[in-house]
């Protein structure tokens, strides 16, 4: 009897390890990651953000839900055609979730890169007047993310995009941005070799680097 209890206990703990504590969590996250990937309209982004927020409320010690909530809001703002006020409201929401994620998992390169992405989105809502005050903060944040994890392809791809924007503004060549984009693509390759297809960890961002590299 005792052995069977032990077996059961072992079985249960194996199950929970394999499914990251909670199969429902895992399943919900994977569904929403698909939804976010295919999101195209404001409503779809909002639906994904809402869903991630709901999952986050159920799993207050996991950093992935607030991270993806932030990503959904940021992408929504980047694509929104609305007024600057609207974009700012979305990005404030995104930043709120970045902070939540950072509280759960401090010094996480992905979350720091996300923070930089949000600030960069704020900058691009009004580059003429925000560029001067925000661009150093963006560069510093991406730099920090790259320092925390040298193999984070998103931090490098975002940095490439920022460098590209700056180079255009100052009328300089895109060499530095191209170099970064190329390196980030190598990192993306490495990442896709080593990660499982059903990971909750971030894998997005390849298109950014590819888009940039094409213009090189």
């Amino acid at each position: 009897m005792k052995t069977s209890i032990l077996t059961l206990a072992l079985f249960i703990s194996w199950v929970s390890l394999a499914f990251a504590n909670d199969p429902a969590y895992e399943k919900a996250m994977l569904t929403q990651l698909e939804n976010l990937k295919s999101a195209n309209s404001k409503t779809e982004y909002q639906a994904a953000a809402n869903a991630f927020e709901r999952i986050g409320n159920m799993n207050t010690d996991a950093w992935h839900p607030p991270y993806y909530t932030a990503l959904a809001y940021t992408q929504m703002a980047m694509r929104a055609e609305g007024s600057m006020k609207e974009k700012d409201a979305l990005l404030d929401k995104a930043m709120e979730h970045v902070k939540k994620a950072a509280d759960i998992s401090p010094s996480n390169s992905e979350i720091v890169a996300m923070e930089g992405y949000v600030i960069m989105a704020k900058l691009s809502a009004d580059p003429g007047s925000r560029g001067q005050s925000l661009s150093p903060i963006v560069l510093q944040t991406f730099g920090k993310a790259m320092g925390l994890d040298k193999t984070n392809p998103r931090a490098m791809a975002l940095m490439a995009q920022m460098e590209n924007g700056m180079a255009q503004f100052f009328g300089q060549g895109p060499e530095k941005a191209c170099r970064l984009a190329k390196t980030s693509l190598e990192l993306f390759d490495k990442e896709s070799e080593t990660t499982l297809s059903n990971t909750l960890n971030p894998t997005w961002g390849r298109e950014l680097a590819e888009g940039l590299e094409k213009s090189c």
Binding site: Q46, A47, N50, R54, M58
Partner: peptide, 16 residues
Amino acid sequence: VPGVSVFLKGTYDGTT
């Protein structure tokens, strides 16, 4: 109002 998160508290069940 579009984009409202509607859900049962304490569950994964919900929509927008």
